[in-house]
Design a binder for these strands. Structure first.
Lengths: 372, 372
DNA sequence: CCCATTGTTGAATCTTTAG
DNA sequence: TCTAAAGATTCAACAATGG
């Protein structure tokens, strides 16, 4: 297979730091091409390696349409052992070319992220955080067989425990309404105008990452002028954001189609004005509280009887947060609607609970819970 | 010392399933005590293994000898190898005693969760989800050197890829305001009245998990009467929630202090009323009703015309319960699929019948029939 | 032009039972 | 062990369409 042989053939003489190819895409295998770069020349690495998804057959949505799966050859590995070997090889090169105070980010899902994490730790990297990218709009689980796979994980690691790495704490805090940035980030998936499409309208790359994600990564852990390497460059999200944030970048990519798309895309991206480097629109999700959460956290006990404001209807809270009135069962909203024969109903204001002072809308309990 | 020697000494004769010690805490080392349990006797395992070798005391060198404390001279690899060895040992026992259709949950942080994930995958477990517990109120990062560590990760895995595991999809959906539950759960950390304190006011256990977390875990992946094992029982959150949700439980714990606290706590926990335990019924496993039965029993008369929700297609019910549209004939599912050109179709939700108030899905007729 | 409605899609390890 | 049939199953964002 390609990678291993390429490594063996890698030239011993590497270009000097001054001759590093900045702001370009290197066509080729990531391990072989990293092998040609000098030691300790990179400030930050962002890597989006294959996830090794191991998909089975076709998957259809409830409406009968078929899910466009990631079935590309580059995501296929025989066994975990093969994947581990691949991971250790590219991580070893990545570690060699990373400056002593540099950091690496790797993104993945439960299919591969544990292998990556162990690879990083065993190679001597020092994990700083695992960051959860909470997708605002993930693909649902169509068959109702598992929890919606609604996040991906990034591991952020320094080259060693002693590294004096870059972390722009104040920039992150500013980006987050003046409270510390947490290890979970809610961002939408890549879609709309940002998503690259071929002429036939199909997506150019199956797993294009959103620029907002790279924006936050780079703003957190690099400085203007830094050299950012992406060994799995794809359609160049890392390059586009690096250019926008005035970082230098190097991309390594094998597929000519992706390289062409990335070139065009990055050429169309303008560096930000110095003055504009401060922020980027972010969606701050307003807090949503499910009724079930109040049950789980003991605010409302299973078995509690609710009624409407005029005590005409009653229903009992079950342990899963559903409401039951005789043969009717469902959410607080649905049962309220069915009882009234209405098309919809706001269960938060419709249902009440008996307290010492009289009836209290369950919305009041929610507010209390939110207030802590 | 414990575990390794105990394993070697583990008796070959294990108690029969009927003699399993339910609803009790076994005092001892988790590996040694699991080794005494029979094969395939557990429905669900929840494990909160030590993250930190120093705190847990579960220190074994690769050769099996015990280590008193973490020595600064140790290099990281040795430490990781030791932790991996410990992980593989307890996971092997866990896998042996788990029923073929059982599942395991393991919670951890970036310090250990990658090692656990690889251990699970290498042992043959089949990862179903990684679940992120987003802490509503995490400890801030005081030094401002990293992102606030605001989450922990749980891995949910079946014994094998072929397992027919329990997932109470509808209960989870009910708990989440009628949208399917995602892989990221926001729950508060354990505090307030729930947090166990010693007489001097210090917390009894350093990492007591909130009951709301276990509540959701158990509600999702087990059934009343199931046997839930927690090999790192601590102060018994798993036992308390199991009792509340009418599951049977087994805890293994080494520290007498934790065992005492757990006993007292669980004794003070009451099972939910039977009536509160009836939430949203899972469709899976319900009695199946053939469409023909509704025709036979007169709920739907032969000759009735059915149509889809938007009245685009029509078909007629025949006396044998088949459906006919022009030259097409077959089951409600097959005719619906053929008309839409879809690979499959749920005829119960696709086909409707004209009633006084408008169109009604034939599934509603089925539910009525089932209700009697 | 605006608003409501309908259709499309995204890193997905995605069914169960009878015969 | 296999095959065939029954039957259960989706959320948010965005684009396109139509009035």
């Amino acid at each position: 297979m390609g990678a291993l042989q390429s490594i063996a053939k890698a030239p011993r003489a590497r270009p000097s730091l001054a001759l590093l190819p900045f702001d370009t895409i290197i066509a080729g295998d990531c391990i072989a091409e990293m092998a040609k770069l000098p030691d300790k020349c990179i400030d930050m690495i962002f890597a989006d390696p294959p996830y090794n998804l191991q998909l089975g057959g076709d998957l259809f949505r409830p409406d009968g349409s078929q899910v466009d799966a990631v079935d590309d050859d580059w995501d296929k590995f025989d066994t975990f052992a093969t994947y581990d070997r691949f991971t250790r090889l590219w991580l070893a090169e990545a570690r060699r070319i990373l400056k002593d105070d540099g950091t690496i980010w790797v993104i993945g899902s439960y299919h591969n992220i544990f292998r990556v994490g162990v690879g990083l730790q065993d190679a001597g990297f020092w994990v700083l955080n695992d960051i959860v990218w909470r997708k605002a709009n993930p693909m649902p689980n169509f068959k109702g067989t598992r929890f919606t796979n609604a996040h991906e994980t990034m591991i952020w690691a320094a080259k060693s425990a002693k590294s004096r790495y870059t972390f722009n704490y104040r920039a992150m805090k500013a980006l987050n309404d003046d409270v510390q940035m947490r290890s979970d980030w809610e961002l939408p998936i890549c879609g709309g105008q940002e998503r690259l499409k071929d002429e036939d309208g199909t997506k150019t790359h199956p797993t294009q990452k959103p620029e907002s994600l790279l924006y936050r990564v780079m703003l957190a852990a690099s400085r203007p002028g830094d050299i950012v390497l992406d060994p799995f460059f794809g359609t160049g999200t890392t390059g586009a954001v690096a250019r926008r944030l005035r970082r230098r970048w190097i991309g390594i990519e094998r597929e000519p189609k992706y390289i062409a798309a990335a070139h065009e895309r990055i050429a169309g991206t303008l560096p930000l004005d110095e003055s504009a480097m401060e922020g980027m629109p972010e969606r701050k999700g307003q807090k949503r509280v499910a009724f079930g959460l109040l049950v789980e956290s003991g605010v409302i006990a299973p078995g509690t009887r609710l009624c409407d404001a005029r005590r005409r209807w009653h229903a009992e809270v079950k342990m899963d947060g559903s409401l039951v009135h005789e043969t009717l069962a469902g959410s607080i909203h649905k049962v309220g609607a069915m009882l009234q024969g209405a098309p919809s109903c706001n269960g938060w204001s419709f249902w009440h609970i008996e307290e010492a002072g009289g009836l209290v809308a369950i919305d009041a309990l929610r507010q209390r819970h939110l207030a802590g």
